[in-house]
Design a binder for these strands. Sequence first.
DNA 1: AGTATCGATTTGTCATACATCTTCAGACCT
DNA 2: AGGTCTGAAGATGTATGACAAATCGATACT
Lengths: 225, 225
Amino acid sequence: MYDKSILSQRVAENIKQMILDKDYHPGDKLPNEIEMTQMVNVSRSTIREAIKILVSTNILEVRRGKGTYVSEKPGLTKDPLGMDFINEDRLLMDLFEIRLLLEPEMTKLAVERGVQSDFDKIFETYERVAEQIKSGKNHTEADIAFHTAIADASHNIIMNRIVPLINEGIVGGYLKTKDNPESAEEVLRQHESIVEFIKKREPQKAKKAMQDHILYGLQGFKRYN
Amino acid sequence: MYDKSILSQRVAENIKQMILDKDYHPGDKLPNEIEMTQMVNVSRSTIREAIKILVSTNILEVRRGKGTYVSEKPGLTKDPLGMDFINEDRLLMDLFEIRLLLEPEMTKLAVERGVQSDFDKIFETYERVAEQIKSGKNHTEADIAFHTAIADASHNIIMNRIVPLINEGIVGGYLKTKDNPESAEEVLRQHESIVEFIKKREPQKAKKAMQDHILYGLQGFKRYN
DNA sequence: AGTATCGATTTGTCATACATCTTCAGACCT
DNA sequence: AGGTCTGAAGATGTATGACAAATCGATACT
């Protein structure tokens, strides 16, 4: 992966490989640092640096005083596209552009491929958004959960990793129109429409509803920027 | 970002912030570890662990014996979606599914928004693929460069970060049909078709050509799996 | 002029000690 | 008996000092 002459990276690579080889599973606890030094015969500093590498790529998770564990969604990092470092004005437009390509089709796939538990999850997150909006709270988090639930139902592994990223990216720089009460009501109606078509198992119409939903968000963004 | 009570993570966060604040730019050299310990008043272990965190998220880059530098494309990591850890058979299908949603439209945008230097880059990478194929070499790397050049021309920042990922993901598990000599010739014809429509500034036809290209790859993959 | 070596700079690794957090068992109090 | 406090054990976090190894340039040598 990187420079193999550097010990800590080799150790990190070994640990990663052990996880890939299913010697350890998500949630498992690794031996403590002292034991590892004895197993691999390197110093604790080196072990710790190896662990740090794996932690920041979300392969491991350290709980102070308890131990080191394998992460739940190993390898999926926090800001994988490095959006923190993009500050161009186009970023939000670009994110919408991508959403518009992915999410309508994703919604169609969700209707076609989803099973009952997928749909239940969608309905559940829909309700959460509704509650937040009706009680006047910020519904961004619930909104992302809603879109992510649909992504999961599409049963496309990449989709369910990319879509949350895109949505979180939008939230990152975009908090002006989301808490506009008028638009919140409209968003809710749109969600309802999407959910209805999912219930009726109408892929094309669900797709169209999602498309309208995103276009609406895009317009709101354009208006206020 | 993470647990703020942990010093090394706080230090990492500070360094990252300094880069975000443009105190340091890509390629810049940071102070050496000893100087940093004095500046921040923490031990060298802590500094080093902070650096390790930033290295593995590709924000910093350490050259042994020389120093620590700010990365060129900071924040864009190697396997950001954790595809190494996805084992399911659907992965390749899923990747194609995403490509099919993104790349045709991306090609259209490239024709509409690209400037001459973008097009030159596309032609150049097209030639590289052609050379590789004609000399019977493995053209996967050049192929990715070709698709990435189109992504760049679309002037969508997210596109030019996602598309390489998807393409590299496909290469990761998919080396059977790519070096099939028969298919390589066909791939070249398809690339040529795409390039032609870009030259003629025909967005819709370029889009269609890209769509056919990806569908062809998808069929080849289905046939051999 | 070329090259070989040495030394300064900087990161890599090791070793040890102590600090802090987490958990839990056992003493202690009521 | 039940709750609370304390402290020990286990684990990660931080500090410090020493030496190893890579890099690069200057210096000396041929």
